[in-house]
Design a protein around this nucleic acid. Structure first.
Length: 949
RNA sequence: GCCAAAGUGGUGGAAUUGGUAGACACGCUGGACUCAAAAUCCAGUGCUGGCAACAGCGUGUGGGUUCGAGUCCCACCUUUGGUACCA
């Protein structure tokens, strides 16, 4: 009987949605299970075949959990604020809200084709006012709280100010960026502006100066992503680091808890390692160095205070505020030059350039706190203003970069650690005995650190301190398409937050989506919005990470207008049991969500410490980018060359991406454009209408292809694995695959491609095999014309095949090994076909077994099996071990670890008997003749190894 | 540069975590059915040598541990992701 997947899918899609099959309630007598996907950014290119990879995995798991007795929450929504929609608006004038809405409806339509069990009534869209109202509300709470170190949690600012007026700064043990000391009286006498300034070093959301990538040519701040080799990707204008006042979130207050929480979660080790490294906890000391002839001191942070007698120079970040003050007149020009130069360098360049060091002497000298020697103060861009204190003591003998610097600028290198006892030790290793170091001489490094730390503290030269590599998060964007801050400034510039009934602060309409000339957000042009009574609004907007930091909570109670979610809903769902998403979010999104979750817990809204209990990284499905080689002639006309003719000529041609629809043998090494392909390319890119083509068949004009005068001509293309993206014209739409093969096949195929966490380029080779499997599966239940099953009792062999499969599939789902689960199902169907099995006793459980993977075909068969309710709420088949018991086991017999022959032994035979028995085998004599048998190794049920010499 | 991951047939991948390398699938080759094609079915398919039985080699490269290594250790090479304003 024919398998008409289109009819079946159409029927069940409608039926499921009419029956509200996937609607989930916030109460149940079943245990809860929350499965979450990282929601997509709805880009203009539409959903591509890479997106559903994780969604299919989580969908299978959700269905499996539902069939094994859980109340499963499996929602979907959209991360809808973001840069691409804004850039599209700048380019075309189309409002981001409009293009975003269109993109979302396209995404939803595409998603609906794949048979996901999302509860769409819980959809969340971050750019809608009813959602971002609560994003703004959480921000306002961050503004209104500080981190109390005694209670180890966030507390209201009111408690802080109460303590200040009662006992001054001494009354408080709080996390702050700037520890100014004052008495209660001094506090009470301060002006509103002064108080606000002090409080901003305590608030969890605060303003300070930060550095951004400013592009004068485009009049805007750029993401690192938009910069290539120090120039803007669009337009190629120079980019420099510029100081701007920005909002920040004090995530560093939570550094310790973010670190500790990693021990509670079931995440991939690699991801935990990445977050641990990102937080970058280190213990060291801050030390103050006097500056010769100045009152100011240089504060440095070092993890190697033991090396202090090896200091031969100091280095400040070029942005360091002291640079201007201490630079001597005769060095001023050179220092200014260097500071401007370093502004043109991105942070990443500054950190990754280890071969080439650069710097400039300021003319000033610092005074060594222990031996009083004068050490020169340099500036260099390998020191970053945002890390530690923005200044280091340089110890060339024990630090690679300091050493490279000292070598280049001929600064002294003082040996202070004798590593002769450790011949393999590297320069930075913390081993050896101290020399040339006064009172530290003779101590091992670790002891020396303790000794010097004690000395630093007792002589008030500095403090022992824990430092984090992680920095506070810049939370300001000078852009339009993001959440407005719920912040008002009074005439003196003191910020305050809007109350909850003033929220949401809606994004105003603007005519121009570009930032202003001086880099302000486009919102600053909307004067009637900015001026609110005698106050003015903050015109920056929040970054895209804002909305995604808490969306998983909103799914629990998405319609709530009184709260971000009701207490009951939060209490019931608690946190996410399984989170599936790409490793590209390893740090930013996952770290900020954890931070917000902990903050909301401190305020009593949540009961759990961590938002995502278990996390699975899905790999990316990459695209193959097809390029043609373009060479510019001496007279500047365009000539395309066949890729074959351009091999090993890297750099002599430009790579022009071609739409993959034009390419024959797409994705293979032999991909090419045929005559038709070149014609399509020319119609698509009319700017090349006068180009010429050099192929293996000869030289041709563009017109030859348009007029059909170049038949049989082929132009090879370059193929490169990369992102699937609109800009490379290589997006493969799942709709097309679903239309051709059906949703069940598409789902199975994506899972069958390989392990879920592995990345791989998209390739439809092999989809036939999965499609064939579905048809064979369907065929088991039908004879030539109709559905036909037998009521006979199942044979032992049939039950064995079934239960082997049940065991494997259940185990594999538990391990998220879907590709092997599908293999097992293929094997099962193949075996049952061989056995000519059409017994209901076997095939009925099989439908339930396959249902989470192929929801449409199994639902159809379930109905044919005379069931009224859905297979997706039936129970999952149980595994019965007794069906798998074997009488005999076939052992591989190895000699010296190499397999030589197979031999069956009774299952019941003991290890000792096997050892004896194997030596009597005739087959063995050939391999042991003339040799001594040393021993026999038997691994019961697995293998036998005879060791000879 | 730093952090993280991955390299297994012509291709996607499997291997119970130290125990038969290549399951399952694609592709390819041959055959059946057919006027023919498609679909379907059957057989073969890591490489080298051999008519064959069989033997040798084989999991990115080079070493090491072990009765036994795709799996563990050391060094290296290549690819991918992240690197704080892409999401």
């Amino acid at each position: 009987m024919v398998f008409d997947f289109q009819e079946i899918e159409k029927y069940w899609k409608k039926k499921w949605s009419a029956d509200l099959l996937y609607k989930v309630e916030n109460t149940s007598d079943r245990p809860k299970y929350y499965v979450l996907d990282m929601f997509p950014y709805p880009s203009g290119a539409g959903l591509h075949v890479g997106h559903p990879l994780g969604y299919i995995a989580s969908d299978i798991f959700s269905r499996y959990k539902r069939m094994t007795g859980f109340n499963v929450l499996h929602p979907m929504g959209f991360d809808a604020f973001g840069l691409p929609a804004e850039e599209y608006a700048i380019a075309t004038g189309v409002h981001p809200a409009v293009s975003t809405r269109e993109n979302i409806s396209r995404y939803k339509e595409q998603l609906s084709n794949i048979g996901f069990c999302f509860d769409w009534s819980r959809e969340v869209i971050t750019c809608e006012p009813k959602y971002y109202k609560w994003t703004q509300w959480i921000f306002s709470l961050l503004f209104e709280h500080y981190y109390d170190l005694d209670q180890d949690k966030a507390l209201p600012i009111k408690e802080l100010t109460d303590k200040f007026s009662g006992g001054g700064s001494k009354a408080v043990n709080a996390f702050s960026s700037d520890a100014e000391d004052f008495s209660a009286d001094e506090w009470n006498a301060k002006s509103a502006v002064q108080k606000s300034d002090i409080l901003s070093s305590y608030r969890l959301a605060y303003r300070r100066i930060g550095y951004v990538n400013w592009c004068e040519g485009l009049g805007t701040v750029l993401a690192n992503d938009q910069i290539k080799d120090g120039l803007s990707e669009r337009g190629g204008y120079p980019v420099e680091r510029r100081a701007m006042t920005q909002w920040y979130l004090r995530i560093t207050a939570y550094a310790e808890r973010l670190l500790a929480g990693l021990e509670q979660v079931d995440w991939p080790q690699s991801l935990i390692a990445m977050q641990t490294n990102w937080i970058g906890k280190s213990t060291g000391a801050t030390v103050y160095f006097d500056i010769d002839g100045h009152d100011e001191k240089i504060e440095i942070f070092t993890t190697r205070p033991d090396t202090i007698f090896g200091v031969s120079f100091m280095v400040l970040a070029p942005e360091h505020p002291l640079v201007e003050k201490i630079t001597t007149d005769c060095m001023k020009l050179k220092v200014d030059d260097y500071v401007s130069y370093s502004r043109t360098r991105s942070e990443r360049d500054r950190l990754s350039d280890v071969k080439e060091v650069s710097g400039q002497f300021t003319g000033a000298y610092a005074v060594h706190p222990f031996n009083g020697q004068k050490v020169p103060v340099w500036i260099a861009d390998y020191v970053l203003m945002d890390y530690g204190t923005g200044a280091i003591m340089a110890v060339p003998s024990d630090d690679d970069r300091d050493y490279a610097f000292a070598t280049k600028f001929e600064l002294p290198v003082v040996e202070i650690i004798d590593k002769s006892a450790y011949p393999d030790a590297q320069r930075q290793d913390k081993v050896g005995k101290l020399i040339n170091s006064d009172f530290l001489n003779g101590l091992e490094v670790l002891d020396a650190i303790d000794t010097i730390n004690a000395k630093i503290e007792s002589s008030h030269l500095g403090k022992v301190r824990v430092n984090y590599r992680m920095r506070d998060a810049n939370f300001s964007r000078q852009r339009y398409w993001g959440e407005p801050f719920p912040i008002l400034f009074d005439s003196e510039g003191v910020p305050s937050v809007c109350t909850v009934d003033e929220l949401p602060v809606k994004l105003p309409e603007v005519e121009d989506f570009k930032p202003t000339k001086d880099g302000q957000s486009p919102l600053s042009r909307v004067k009637e919005w900015v001026n609110e009574g005698d106050k003015t609004r903050e015109t920056d907007t929040m970054p895209a990470v804002a909305g995604s930091s808490w969306y998983y909570l909103r799914y629990m109670d998405p319609g709530n207008d009184e709260a971000f979610a009701s207490e009951q809903a939060l209490d019931y769902w608690q946190n996410v049991d399984l989170y599936v998403g790409g490793a590209e979010h390893a740090v930013s999104h996952l770290l900020y969500s954890r931070f917000w979750h902990k903050f909301l817990k401190d305020l009593g809204y949540l009961k759990t410490e961590e938002p995502f209990k278990k996390l699975i990284n899905q790999g990316m499905i990459q695209g193959v980018i097809e390029f043609v080689a373009l060479v510019k002639d001496s007279d500047d006309s365009n000539v395309f060359y066949c890729a074959n003719l351009m091999e090993n000529k890297e750099g002599e041609y430009a790579r022009i991406p071609v739409h993959i629809d034009f390419v024959s043998q797409y994705g293979s090494n032999d991909s090419y454009l045929d005559e038709k392909g070149i014609k399509s390319f020319l119609e698509w890119r009319p700017d090349y209408k006068s180009a010429r083509f050099v192929t293996q068949q000869g030289k041709f004009e563009a017109s030859d292809f348009m007029n059909g005068k170049a038949s049989e001509v082929t132009l090879k293309t370059f193929s490169e694995v990369g992102k699937m993206s609109k800009r490379y014209y290589n997006v493969v739409n799942p709709d097309d695959v679903v239309a051709e093969y059906g949703a069940d096949t598409f789902r199975l195929y994506e899972m069958f491609l390989g392990p879920i966490e592995q990345s791989k380029p998209w390739d439809t080779q092999g989809i036939e095999g999965v499609s064939k499997f579905i048809r064979k599966f369907w065929g088991l239940y039908h004879d030539e014309e109709k559905f036909m099953l037998s009521e006979d009792a199942a044979a032992k062999a049939e039950l064995k095949v079934l239960h082997q499969c049940i065991k494997k599939v259940r185990d594999d789902i538990g391990n998220f090994s879907f590709n092997t689960a599908i293999s097992a199902m293929m094997i099962c169907v193949n075996e049952l076909r061989k056995l000519n099995c059409n017994k209901k006793a076997v095939l009925e459980p099989l439908v339930r077994l396959i249902a989470p993977f192929a929801p449409f075909v199994s639902e159809e068969l379930w109905k044919k099996l005379d069931n009224d309710s859905s297979v997706h709420i039936a129970s999952y088949p149980h595994f019965e071990a007794s069906y798998l018991v074997e009488d005999e086991i076939e052992y591989p017999v190895c000699v010296n670890g190499k397999k030589r022959f197979l031999k069956s032994f009774p299952n019941s035979m003991s290890k000792a008997d096997l050892e004896k028995e194997v030596l009597t085998l005739e087959e063995l004599t050939k391999w042991v003749e003339g040799k001594t048998i040393l021993k026999t190794i038997v691994v019961p049920g697995r293998m036998i190894n005879v060791v000879v010499k």
